[in-house]
Simulated scan of single mutants.
Amino acid sequence: MLGTRVRAVVVGICSLLLPGLGQALIRRWVRALFFVGLFITTVAVFVPESALTADVPLDGLFAHAQDVSQNMSDWGTIAITVVQFGAMMDAYVQALQRPTQTTEGPTCPRCGREVEPTHGFCQWCTYEFEEPADN
């Protein structure tokens, strides 16, 4: 259970830094595309156009980011923060959820996914079974 929580925190932090990244890490592709699109749309609406088209050298990137954040309206800052926080919380909650069991065969006791019992381990989370089952 601790591994699941650590994974959820890491996925949440990734999604806070770049909305949609955490969802992509846990393979929730539609949610990842949704949050990436929402973030790009929010940036396009609220960040001044002059900041998006500026040619900035790599060593001046941090200073340019500070200038952009100072020139952006309060509503823009709030909108981008809401998108980042929403993406973080969604990724965290999605990472904590167990997959729904729709299989008829044997499942892994750790991750709940369908496994091939003759392998002796779960091919999804590498959990080793006590002894391989014979079918």
Rank of each mutant, 00 (worst) to 15 (best):
M1L: 11
M1V: 12
G3I: 07
V6W: 06
V6R: 08
V9E: 04
V10G: 00
G12H: 01
L16R: 03
L16Y: 13
L17Q: 05
L17T: 14
L18A: 09
G20L: 00
G20A: 07
L21A: 14
Q23K: 06
Q23S: 04
R28M: 02
R28P: 00
I40V: 15
T41M: 10
V43G: 03
A44C: 10
V45G: 01
F46V: 03
F46M: 05
V47W: 06
E49G: 03
L52N: 12
L52S: 11
L52G: 13
A54M: 12
D55R: 09
D55M: 06
P57V: 07
D59F: 03
L61I: 13
F62M: 09
F62S: 09
A63Q: 13
A63N: 07
A63K: 09
A63W: 00
H64L: 03
D67V: 04
S69K: 07
N71V: 09
S73C: 03
D74L: 13
D74P: 00
D74V: 09
G76R: 06
I78T: 14
I78V: 15
I78R: 11
I78M: 12
I78D: 08
A79S: 15
I80N: 04
I80P: 01
V82G: 07
V83C: 05
Q84W: 08
F85S: 14
A87F: 05
A87Y: 04
M88I: 02
M88H: 02
M89Q: 02
D90M: 00
Y92R: 01
Y92L: 09
V93N: 08
L96I: 05
Q97D: 12
R98E: 13
R98I: 05
T100P: 04
T100C: 10
T100M: 14
T100H: 11
Q101G: 04
Q101I: 14
E104V: 11
P106G: 04
P106D: 14
T107D: 06
C108L: 08
G112E: 12
E114R: 08
E116D: 15
P117T: 09
H119D: 14
C122V: 08
Q123S: 10
Q123F: 07
W124S: 08
C125F: 02
Y127N: 11
Y127L: 13
Y127Q: 11
E131W: 02
D134N: 09
